[in-house]
Write a protein that binds this DNA or RNA. Sequence first.
DNA 1: GAAATAGTTCAATTGTTATTGAACTATTAA
DNA 2: TTAATAGTTCAATAACAATTGAACTATTTC
Lengths: 99, 99
Amino acid sequence: MRELFHPTTDQFNLPTILYALGDPNRLQIIKNLSSQNETTCACCNVNLPKSALSHHFKVLREAGLIYVRLEGKQRYLSIRYKELEERFPGLLNVIIKSE
Amino acid sequence: MRELFHPTTDQFNLPTILYALGDPNRLQIIKNLSSQNETTCACCNVNLPKSALSHHFKVLREAGLIYVRLEGKQRYLSIRYKELEERFPGLLNVIIKSE
DNA sequence: GAAATAGTTCAATTGTTATTGAACTATTAA
DNA sequence: TTAATAGTTCAATAACAATTGAACTATTTC
């Protein structure tokens, strides 16, 4: 794997995004990421085996919620905040701030 | 069935709500409902057999997204706009307006 | 009270998704 | 070049969710 698929903003799809956020583990990941600029997979503070984390990161990435930057032996994760805001203004803020 | 369960606002749960909206059929139902004040199950403009519709309405109702009022032999559906707005301000507007 | 209407529930099926550990790949460090 | 590290992929399983038609319930109308 040398290049990771990231949808363009016009490929963003609302039900897909909501579905991705509809899982408690993934929602937690997004909330955790939102308080950090960029972080590695291991630093997400979600207590799951790495294969499970990998799965959830993939769902989030393919929905367009996170960007995964490859650097050395690590992957740095960040929320695609600007693009999401552009396409679905307000959505992410509501979600991150809730509760 | 004489009384339908509707969660109170403090029982609203974000992942549950997002999950409910993460299904294309249910998202369409919500979008359709948003342009009507109150409507019966049959008037949702979603082309599914009634048993499937009934299932989706239940998921939406139990998540707190819609209110179902029993009157005679019909059920009148409406979005719980005010309560949702109170608990997750902006969420529904983003969703309804998107695309 | 029989028929029509509006919707629910049931049971069966199908399809999808989450979860796991083990094996794997790629990169860096010793 | 070997070992360690960071994460992915695979295969198996288990759990859950969507979909359907048929049977059911409740209400209204004839």
